[in-house]
Each structure stands twice: as C-alpha cells, then as structure tokens.
Design a binder for these strands. Structure first.
Length: 566
RNA sequence: UGCCUUAUGGUGUAACGGUAGCACAACAGAUUCUGAAUCUGUUUGUCAAGGUUCGAAUCCUUGUAAGGCAACCA
C-alpha cells in the first residue's frame, strides 16, 4: 500500500510580520545587501515545537529574501551541553526541511577571538577581574529599585588585571573564586549593565574544545560578537532577551567587530496542555514520566515525528500562528488542525477495529470468501483500490453497537440496519452475552442485493456506514492512543508542581486490535487514516517486521462525541 | 516604591491616519458509502478615559491589566 500522489498543500505563504517588515526596509534602504540570520540553540536538550517557530522564522526569512541562515550551537556552558543534543538538533532541523549548507558554527569556534577581545577590554580599562563571591556580588548589585555598589576590585590596574586574567586562564584558581567583569555602570536601571560577568572559571571539559579552556565566556559576552563575526544582519531571539539588548549593543560598540547585527525580539510559543521549558521536559525524561525525548506525547520535534506528524504540517502551523511581541497562549487545536488537514490529503485509508466485537452473518455461506474492492482515498481516485476479504465472521467496533440505543445514535442495534463500508448492508437480529452480561457476539444477516455497499433496488436507506474487518483474515496488532500530557490548559501557569498536573490517561495501549491484512506489511513511519477513527502511523521503535505497532497521530473530528457528551 | 515591553471576537493574528479582515474554535444548514472531508451561512472584538485630526485600532497624555529583568544559565 503506498501513499497516493496527492498534491501536497504547499506551505501557505508566510504572512507578513513586523520582523519581515524590518528586513524588507533594511534591504530596500540599502542598509544591507542581503539578509543573514541564524538559529542558535544551546545543545542542552532536544528541540521542541517552540524551537520550530524560531527555525521557521530564521530559515524562512533567509529563503524568502534570498539570504542564508546559519546553524550555530551556543555552547558556552560545558556543564550542561552534550554531543547527543548536537546530533539530535541537526537531525530535527533537517527533518523540518531546512538546510544550513556550509554554515554550521559553534560559539566555541570563537573562544580564541573572544578571549582576545576580553584582553582588549581590560587594556581599555573597560573590564576587571573581580574576586567577590557570587553571594557578595549579588549583594553589591543592588535591587530593582536601588543602585548597586562598586566592587572593591573595580579599580585595579591594567597590569594586575592582565596578570590575574592570564592566571585564571592558566588554571591557577578554583571555580567561583574570580570572574572577569565589564566596567559599565553599577547604578544603571537595567541590571544587565551593572558590571556583567564576561568570563567565569569552569574546570570542566567541553564537548568540542576538550580541556583547552578552563574559563568560559558568558552568553552575553559571546552571542552578539558571534553574530558580528558571522555577519548576521538580523539576530532574532525571544522576548526575555529584550533587557539584554543594551548590553548586546555595548559590546558591539566597544569592540572592533567586523559587522553590526541588530537584535530583534519576538514572543516565544506557548501551547495549551503542554509545557515548553527545557528544564521541565528534561525532568519528564529523567524521571521517566515519559519514555524519552521522542515519546509521542512530548512537544519535541522528535516526539511529533515519532507520533506521525509531517514536517509540512509543523511548518504550516508555524506560519499560521504568526510572529508578534504579544505573549499569548496558542490553542493546541490549531496544531491538530494542521496535521489533520495534511494527513487528510495524503494518508491512504485503511480498516482497523480497535475494540473488536464479533459478528456472525447467519445467512452468509459458511465457506465463502469474497474480495471487496475499496478505494484507497475517497477524493483521489488515482490512489487506486485494494481488495478486502469478506466472510461470515467479522469484527466491528464495540462502540458502534448499542443494545438500547437513543434516537440520536444511528449505528447498529437490535433490529437495526447499517452499511458495512464497501461491503453489504447488515441487520442485527440477536445479541449473545457472556456470563457477566457483556455482549460477546452479534447475530446478523446481510442483504446480497447491496454488494459493494450499494443501496438496494427497493430504495432502502441506512443512516450509518461502519468499518469492519474479516475475523478470519484480520491481523492482530497493538495500537497506542495518546491524549494530552497535562490535564490543565496552562500547566506552567500556577505555583502547582507541574508533575501533579500530568494526565494519568495520556497513554492508552490497546493490545487486541484487529487490522485489515495488508497492514501487516506496513513499514515504520507509514501513515494511514483508519476510517472513522483517526490518523495512525507505524511506530519506528516498537514495530517488528510483520507486526507493526501503530501510534494514533490525531483523532478524526468527532461530532458524535459532542452529541454523546451532552 | 525602578526600568523595559505588550494590550484587536473564546483563541491566535491582519489592517502602517481612510469600509475592523483572516485562521482555529463554536453554532446552523446543504451534502456525504467515514457522525470525517467538502460547501454555505451565523454569532462574538479595537483595555479605559481624555486629547490631536475632516477622519484614530493606528498618533499624544494619563490610567488599568499582563509579562520580562536583581545566575559566575541561555
């Protein structure tokens, strides 16, 4: 079974936003000849859907304006960073459909240059070695409403600073004993300008530079200069860096950098029913609340990939939500809409019964088997057809039968008739129950005049069409249903421990599902619509040849569930 | 009792001094061999008060609310 050659919905044209307006102005005015952006993840975790927003923005702008986008790892803190993350980030960006070409960089590539620039600031009397402890420094810094006090080490001589900084680098001092600070303004209303730290001592080996350094630059001292070294024109970041911008500009103004990038901030993505903080995602993984970074319930790129999302749907989502400075909360329903829209267009249909209820067709010949020809996609005839075996014993969805159905329920019940999709009309005559009173089997008859599911000559109509599989031919399989990971809309909002807000029913494993025979040959990553149920894809980790495990990517919209819920 | 930022239907966004539009959601109807999809229609909005202007969501003032900032994290 192959996916139909349905036209992919092309990414909807990115709507204009205030950042694209700025880029366009800068190009038109001649301020820049071309645009260069960058995506600068810290390799301390896996990428999530919020990063996808930034990736689509940065790579998207580069594409639209004929520029380029760099992938740069912001690896200035060896305590938290690992190569596993470096690798997963590259895989995820590529999977999303973006290409950085030759422009793969690391902030650690610039450690030498950054060190030279630190020396220059010392010589210019704009930086000094400070021996205050972290606690003392905090006390000296003042508060939001009171100015800070200068460090007692603030007025050291250039020679002494040079000597001390060299010995910091040489490894003569323990961690935390000394830092290099910029000399700016201890009374500034922006705390970031109250003599920020430029370098700290970390006796820690780095995933790229090994033990070459034991002093490491801070984010503030590395980021803007890295941008400048790469001739980034527009440095796009999230809102929490807004207060860092004056510092970003201070370094560019006080150092002989080769270019002058501009930092512009936008709002990060928040999604209902999920957490986006890397710290919390890491905790979910480390404490085994999920099966890993790529657990299909995780809002990570790898989680969505494993769950069956397409890169197109995620890109489309990112362009739908837009870019602003307003800190909102996006309904996860928008993401779900995007994946339904794409999968509806491309996913071949299949029959699967998740909670089987046996049906015996009493007037169907005992030994007979028919091949019923069914379309692979209702709106794409070019996707072809397949044959499904039909016989006297079937499975239908338990949920599609009610012994005492209300008026609004128009599926099967005693004395009721329905259509089996692509097969025959089926009428229920009696119900067989087990010892506990549970319905275990239905006795039905079929109408031979409705072959292929067509209306009979007498003009009889039915309200419902249901999915089914042949009990003699179906293959058993495991199917995993996922629900939102958290019970509440904004698990990050209150003071509650977010773990207490986890949805205990976020994963449901169904081990007794019955699938149409061809599904046994489905390959990892294959996506289908199980008719009337939702979109499902073959789990790449849990499946074995000939026995796939299916993940539910997203359910179909279900207006019966609404009626039922009232 | 600091500085900075933001505010448009239920949600996310557009309108760059000139008809408040789009998407999701919701609701109604049509259609349907998926209670899906598709089609048609409907409901709901410029935080507040002043000011500038022929004209303000847009500019100005004041207020209100929300968010960010006091790591040797990014």
């Amino acid at each position: 079974m192959t996916a139909p050659k349905a036209p992919l919905p092309s990414d909807s044209p990115s709507s204009k936003d205030f950042i694209r307006d700025i880029v366009e102005d800068d190009l038109r005015s001649g301020k820049h000849a071309g645009v260069v952006t960058r995506f600068p993840p810290e390799p301390n975790g896996y990428l999530h859907i919020g990063h996808a927003k930034s990736i689509c923005l940065n790579f998207g702008i580069a594409q639209e304006f004929g520029g380029r986008c760099h992938l740069r790892f912001d690896d200035t803190n060896p305590v938290k960073e690992e190569v596993e993350y470096v690798d997963s980030i590259q895989e995820d960006v590529r999977w999303l459909g973006f290409d950085w070409g030759d422009h793969l960089y690391y902030a650690s590539d610039y450690f030498g240059q950054l060190h030279d620039w630190a020396l220059q600031l010392i010589r210019d009397r704009k930086a000094y070695v400070c021996e205050l402890s972290a606690e003392e420094m905090r006390l000296h810094r003042g508060t939001l409403t009171e100015p800070g006090k200068p460090s007692p080490w603030r007025e050291r001589s250039v020679e002494e600073n040079l000597d001390l900084f060299a010995r910091m680098r040489a490894g003569e001092f323990p961690e935390g004993s000394k830092v290099l600070r910029a000399k700016i303004d201890m009374a500034h209303s922006n705390m970031n300008l109250r003599d920020p730290v430029l370098y700290r001592i970390l006796h820690q080996s780095h995933h790229r530079t090994g033990d070459q350094w034991c002093i490491y630059p801070t984010y503030d001292f590395a980021h803007g200069q890295s941008d400048a070294l790469e001739h980034i024109t527009h440095s796009l970041c999230t809102l929490e860096f807004e207060v860092h911008r004056p510092l970003y500009e201070w370094f560019l103004a006080n150092l002989p950098v080769p270019s002058r990038p501009r930092q512009i901030e936008f709002s990060r993505l928040s999604l209902t029913y999920t957490v986006m903080s890397k710290r919390k995602l890491l905790q979910l993984v480390k404490e085994n609340h999920v099966e890993g970074w790529d657990d299909p319930r995780m809002p990570t790129i790898s989680g969505y990939r494993r769950r069956g999302y397409t890169p197109e749907s995620i890109r489309n989502f990112c362009s739908q939500i837009g870019i602003t400075k307003f800190k909102g909360l996006t309904d996860v329903g928008v993401l779900e809409h995007c994946i339904r829209e794409h999968l509806n267009a491309i996913a071949p249909r299949a029959m699967a019964v998740l909670d089987p209820l046996k049906v015996i067709i009493e007037n169907y010949p005992e030994g007979q088997v028919e091949e019923m020809e069914i379309a692979n996609h209702p709106s794409h005839p070019e996707a072809g057809t397949r044959n499904l075996p039909f016989c006297r014993e079937l499975y239908i969805e338990r949920e599609d039968f009610m012994e005492d159905p209300p008026k609004e329920f128009y599926r099967l019940g005693p004395g009721r008739e329905v259509r089996l999709r692509g097969a025959y009309f089926l009428k229920c005559h009696s119900v067989i129950k087990g010892d506990s009173g549970k319905v275990v089997e239905l006795r039905c008859t079929y109408d031979p005049e409705t072959r292929g599911g067509n209306n009979p000559p007498d003009g009889r109509k039915v309200k419902a069409t249901m999915h089914w599989v042949s009990a003699r031919h179906a293959v058993p399989a495991e199917v995993r249903l996922y629900d939102r990971l958290f019970k509440v809309e904004s698990p990050e909002a209150g003071d509650d421990d977010f773990l207490s807000l986890l949805n205990p029913d976020s994963l449901k494993i169904l081990s007794d599902c019955q699938l149409e025979p061809a599904l046994a040959r489905a390959m990892p990553g294959d996506r289908f619509q199980f008719e009337r149920l939702g979109y499902f894809s073959v789990d790449p980790k849990l499946s074995r040849p000939g026995s796939p495990v299916f993940n539910r990517t997203v359910s179909l919209k279900d207006s019966w569930a609404k009626v039922k819920g009232q």
